[in-house]
Amino acid sequence: MTNALEITQLNYRKNTKTILTDVNLQIAPGKIVGLLGENGAGKTTLMRLIAGVAKNAKGTIAVHGETREAPRRAFVSFSEALQGFRPADKLSQIRDFYALAYPDFSAKKYLDLITFLQIDDDQKLSTLSKGTREKFIIALTLSREAAVYLLDEPFNGIDSMSRKRIISSIIQWKQDSATMVISDHYVSEIAALLDEVVIIKDHTVCAHKSSDQIRSEFGLGIEAFYESIYEGDIHDDEL
């Protein structure tokens, strides 16, 4: 069976600084994977490389076996920060953009999602609070019927009600066969959601384990496991 995501010997430097070295990662279809690491560890960069918007990396990235950049983008739904839109744009105009830009955009899913997340898409982008903006980004990202979803820190700085709604919408609207990677540096609230955990440290993937493995082998919660790796309590040879 083709892996949803297969990264081999990925190396990436930007402005002569090393961001990622020798990253190898395989993720099976249907999994929800937590991508954990400190701020600046390279989580966003890894996602942008998978999504095909970060350039000049060495190594290969295959999404459903597709290594070429442009066709790969068609498989990947990335929670983009809406940077190409103007503050005066209405949310419904942004929806129209998505509907036109992505053949796999489902108008029905979008409607279900914004109803569930309590977003009124008659508003202007500039009037949204941080939480609503993040919810709207999630609604757009999940409205595509993609093979791989990449959610880049979707819970950053938003209130707990929005967070709960986002988590529920992920459970409800992720297709069974789709793979989802969620990056975060604070894991406890999504721990119950994750099939697998990938930890990035020192520019590379230093651990890739299933959540159950962490709980049964190490007798630790995911948060505790992540912390002990960062604090050096668990050594590389134990992983």
Binding site: I32, I167, S168, K174, D176, A192, L193, L194, D195
Partner: peptide
């Protein structure tokens, strides 16, 4: 959804 856990 009720238990807020992964479908898998």
């Amino acid at each position: 959804v009720d238990l807020t856990v992964n479908v898998n």
